[in-house]
Computed example of a mutant assay.
Amino acid sequence: MDRTQNNNDAAKLAKQVGETLRGMRRERGLSLQELADITDVSKLTLGNIERGEANPSLSVIWKIANGLKMPISALMNEKQDIILARKNSGNKVISANEACTLEPMFDTTHYGSVEIHRAFLQPHSEYAPGAHQVGVIEYVTVMKGEVHIKIQDEYYHLHEYDSMKFNADQHHAYLNPTDSETVLHFVMTYTKG
Rank of each mutant, 00 (worst) to 15 (best):
M1S: 14
M1D: 07
D2Q: 12
A11G: 04
K12Y: 10
L13P: 02
L13S: 08
A14W: 03
K15F: 06
Q16K: 14
G18M: 07
E19W: 03
L21I: 06
L21R: 06
R25S: 09
E27W: 01
D37C: 11
T39P: 09
V41L: 09
S42L: 03
K43S: 03
L44Y: 09
L44P: 13
L46A: 11
G47A: 10
N48A: 08
G52H: 01
A54H: 12
N55P: 00
N55S: 13
P56F: 08
S57N: 12
L58D: 09
W62Q: 14
W62A: 07
K63E: 02
I64D: 04
A65C: 05
N66A: 04
G67C: 05
S73C: 01
N77E: 07
E78Q: 11
E78R: 13
Q80D: 11
D81L: 10
I82N: 08
R86D: 06
R86P: 00
S89N: 06
V93P: 02
A96K: 15
N97M: 01
N97S: 07
C100K: 04
L102N: 01
L102R: 02
E103R: 09
F106R: 00
H110V: 02
Y111F: 10
Y111T: 13
G112H: 11
V114P: 01
I116A: 12
H117R: 00
A119Q: 06
F120M: 10
L121P: 01
H124P: 00
E126I: 15
A128V: 06
A131P: 14
A131H: 12
H132E: 07
V134P: 08
V142W: 04
G145E: 05
V147Q: 03
Y161M: 14
S163P: 01
M164S: 05
A168H: 02
D169S: 15
Q170R: 11
H171M: 07
T178A: 14
S180I: 06
E181Q: 15
E181M: 13
T182M: 03
T182R: 08
V183R: 15
H185C: 04
F186N: 00
V187I: 13
T189Q: 01
T191S: 14
G193F: 11
